[in-house]
């Protein structure tokens, strides 16, 4: 069997990865909670963000971590525009249309990336991915530690935004009472677009945190989004706290699964959890409604 030290290290590594998963899930759950749509373009947008990070680092020579803030702003604007001028108008207020529009967007984005970059696997050059930090008996990957810290800070910022600012309060108001919000002079279309933009900004940050230890191909986002969906369902659809906790939990499950079953079967544990949650607690850990 494995020594406790190895298991502990696997758990910590799982937490580190899980925080970045949580960031991907945060964007998904926020958009679901406010717009009540499942954004099928989430994975493609993550891929986009990862290519943007790759391009910033490899073509422009910007440090990955310094590239995150401007890319987050660019993706905020991009997401805002997508919802305001494409998804919103094209879906004409019908949720079924929104599903098709976001699915269509994801196909268009993926194929555009495929045409532009081919299906080659790209990684960041340099050996920063192999930097390790010694923490007691454990050897931890430095980029993952940074990813963990940044993801938690972003989650905290998001929480503060939703709790402390007027825009954040307006987002929460629109999530539950659209008409009441309109009558307070809250522009619902603006709030929808802002929420979608914040979801995309989360993806840009996640992309910057993932890329130092991961690769990018035109379909890479899908793998993360499957995990993100599991996290959202586990945490409760629309719950920000649920996404964070669910992300950490799923990270640990994947890491322990990898340790016990072998790296390639690590994700099997995630889907076992997914099925169990659907069977036993379909509203998720923090879900309010059935």
């Amino acid at each position: 069997m494995y020594t406790p030290a190895i298991v502990a290290e696997a758990m910590v590594n799982g937490l580190l990865t899980g925080a970045v998963y949580a960031l991907v899930a945060l964007g998904l759950t926020l958009v679901y909670g406010v717009l009540h749509i499942i954004n099928f373009a989430h994975g493609a947008l993550l891929t986009c963000a990862m290519f943007a990070v790759w391009a910033a680092s490899e073509l422009l020579g910007i440090n990955v971590y310094l590239a995150i803030p401007p890319l987050a702003l660019i993706f905020l604007a991009l997401g805002y525009a997508l919802q305001r001028f494409v998804i919103g108008p094209a879906s004409r207020g019908d949720d079924a249309n929104t599903l098709l529009v976001t699915l269509g967007l994801s196909i268009a984005i993926e194929n555009a990336l495929l045409a532009a970059f081919k299906s080659d696997t790209r990684t960041l050059s340099g050996d920063a991915a192999f930097d390790v930090v010694e923490l007691g008996p454990m050897l931890l990957s430095r980029p993952r530690l940074i990813g963990f810290a940044v993801a938690l800070v972003v989650a905290l910022l998001l929480w503060a935004l939703l709790r402390r600012t007027d825009s954040g309060k307006a987002i929460r108001a629109v999530a539950r009472e659209k008409m009441g919000a309109s009558l307070m002079g809250i522009d619902v279309r603006h709030i929808y677009a802002l929420t979608f933009g914040i979801g995309c900004a989360c993806l840009a940050v996640a992309a910057g945190l993932l890329l130092p230890t991961f690769y990018v191909t035109p379909r890479v986002g899908q793998a993360f989004v499957l995990v993100a969906f599991t996290i959202v369902v586990l945490g409760g659809m629309g719950s920000v706290a649920g996404a964070l906790l669910g992300g950490l939990l799923i990270g640990v499950v994947e890491s322990l699964g990898g340790l016990l079953l072998g790296e390639s079967l690590g994700q099997a544990g995630i889907f076992v959890i997914f099925i169990l949650v659907l069977l036993l607690r379909p509203t998720g850990l923090f879900g309010a409604r059935a």
């Binding site: 007027d166 309060k169 307006a170 929460r172 108001a173 999530a175 539950r176 009472e177 009441g180 919000a181 307070m184 002079g185 809250i186």
Partner: peptide, 16 residues
């Protein structure tokens, strides 16, 4: 807004 506190509801009254 049922998911928000009384204070937050009042604050949003002065959103615009």
């Amino acid at each position: 807004f049922p998911n928000m506190s009384v204070l937050e509801n009042l604050e949003l009254g002065s959103y615009r």
